[in-house]
C-alpha cells in the first residue's frame, strides 16, 4: 500500500473530509458521482496512478450520490490497465438510468458512511474508529 503522503483522495463525500487523518490529502468538490469519475479519468490520462476501483461498493451508481477514488499525488506514467478501468467505469455508470428519488438527510448520511467505510477499508484504516472520533467531537 502506498504511503498516505503519496496519495490523494478525489471525493464529493463531506464525511471523507472530516474523517481521514491529517496526513491524507483530500481533494473535495461538491460535484456529481459522474463528475468525480470524469475528473479521475482525466487525471489517469495525464499519468496519475489509479489506486482504488472507481466502482467500489455494491450500491449502484444511480443510487448513491457519493464517490471517493484514490489516485497518486503526482503524475507518473499513464498505466493502460488503469485507464481501461476508469473508462469502463464511466461506461458502466452511463448504463444505469439516472435515479429520480429524493434522498432524506439520513439516507444521504448512510450513503456517505458506506463510501467512507469502503475508502477506509481500501486504505487500511479503521472506519469505525474514525467515526467514533467524529462522534465524540460532536459531543
Amino acid at each position: 500500500m502506498e504511503s498516505p503522503l503519496k496519495i490523494c483522495v478525489i471525493t464529493n463525500n463531506p464525511l471523507v473530509v472530516s474523517g481521514l487523518p491529517k496526513q491524507y490529502l483530500v481533494d473535495y468538490a461538491d460535484i456529481t458521482y459522474r463528475q468525480i469519475l470524469v475528473k479521475v479519468r482525466d487525471l489517469v490520462y495525464a499519468g496519475y496512478r489509479l489506486y482504488t476501483h472507481p466502482l467500489s461498493g455494491s450500491v449502484k451508481p444511480n443510487e448513491t450520490p457519493y464517490k471517493s477514488v484514490v489516485v497518486s499525488r503526482k503524475p507518473e506514467k499513464m498505466e493502460v490497465a488503469e485507464a481501461a478501468i476508469i473508462s469502463a467505469s464511466i461506461e458502466t455508470f452511463d448504463k444505469f438510468r439516472p435515479g429520480k428519488r429524493e434522498l432524506t438527510a439520513q439516507i444521504q448520511k448512510d450513503f456517505q458512511l458506506v463510501d467512507y467505510a469502503l475508502l477506509c477499508g481500501a486504505l487500511g484504516l479503521d472506519a469505525a474508529a474514525g467515526l467514533s472520533i467524529i462522534a465524540n467531537q460532536k459531543l
Binding site: S56, G57, L118, L119
Partner: peptide, 8 residues
C-alpha cells in the same frame, strides 16, 4: 468473496 468494507 465480497470484501470491500461495511455491509460488503
Amino acid at each position: 468473496l465480497q470484501s470491500q468494507g461495511l455491509l460488503h
